[in-house]
């Protein structure tokens, strides 16, 4: 029998945590091994709890959920931090973009219900991409342009071998075309090989990091 997926729950509201714990614990594949209100002391505890998937609410006792996960990734390293899902009361494009940029797998809302939570945890644990290039492109286009060049990231992209760099060139060409048909056809999973070489946790974060550093801009 395969080992269970170890889940960590972070939310200021203990009632919400209990409800989520009941939902997740009822699934034979899941085991909730950690739940807390998200204080800063939890950062080290999470590092030591061998968690497979983190479910983090945007409201934590230490502040915003996105900031908490960012701190965790700084502590453990980007690659070592467990994949995380962000939960919030309502879906907001700005929050979704922030979360994806910080390496979250997805944003879950109350509307998506318990089944949505279960499915998202399964997907996060499998490492599959939850968004297509077209949804990312539409999300980015709907928000005001934002640039924050990460020189270290740009340097690492420049050093990529020719074979991998060509995948990025293809991504850039498709992104710049603004042609939704072409964007929809792009296989986001083709970027997975690049994720291993760069300081990002998934393909979506890679695309957003490139966009933020201006690497997808028209020259």
């Amino acid at each position: 029998m395969a080992s269970k997926i170890r889940i960590g729950l972070l939310d200021t509201d203990s009632d919400v945590r209990l409800g989520r714990k009941l939902v997740l614990s009822s699934q034979p594949k899941f085991e909730v091994v950690f739940d807390s209100d998200g204080s800063t002391e939890d950062l080290e505890a999470i590092e030591q709890s061998l968690i497979d998937v983190l479910v983090i609410d945007q409201k934590l006792s230490s502040g915003a959920g996105v900031s908490f996960y960012s701190s965790l990734r700084k502590l453990t390293g980007v690659k070592q931090a467990p994949p995380a899902l962000l939960t919030a009361s309502f879906a907001q494009p700005e929050l979704l973009l922030d979360a994806l940029q910080e390496g979250f797998v997805d944003l879950l809302t109350v509307e998506q219900g318990a089944s949505g939570l279960v499915a998202a945890v399964l997907k996060a644990s499998s490492g599959a991409n939850t968004h297509s290039l077209s949804t990312i492109w539409e999300l980015v286009s709907s928000q005001p342009p934002y640039r924050a060049v990460d020189l270290n990231f740009v340097r690492l992209v420049d050093k990529l071998p020719q074979r991998l760099a060509s995948t990025l060139k293809k991504l850039k060409a498709v992104w710049q075309s603004s042609d939704l048909a072409k964007i929809e056809k792009f296989e986001i999973d083709s970027l997975n090989t690049l994720v291993a070489r760069l300081p990002v946790s998934n393909s979506v974060e890679l695309i957003l990091a490139m966009n933020r550093s201006g690497l997808l801009d028209v020259e």
Binding site: V16, R20, L22, V23, S26, Q27, V110
Partner: peptide, 21 residues
């Protein structure tokens, strides 16, 4: 209110999922 309602919904779902077992 939003927080309380989130709690209501999450707990109701939790109850449904766990009641069988």
């Amino acid at each position: 209110v939003v927080q309380k309602l989130s709690s209501v919904i999450t707990n109701a779902e939790g109850g449904i999922y766990s009641a069988k077992a």
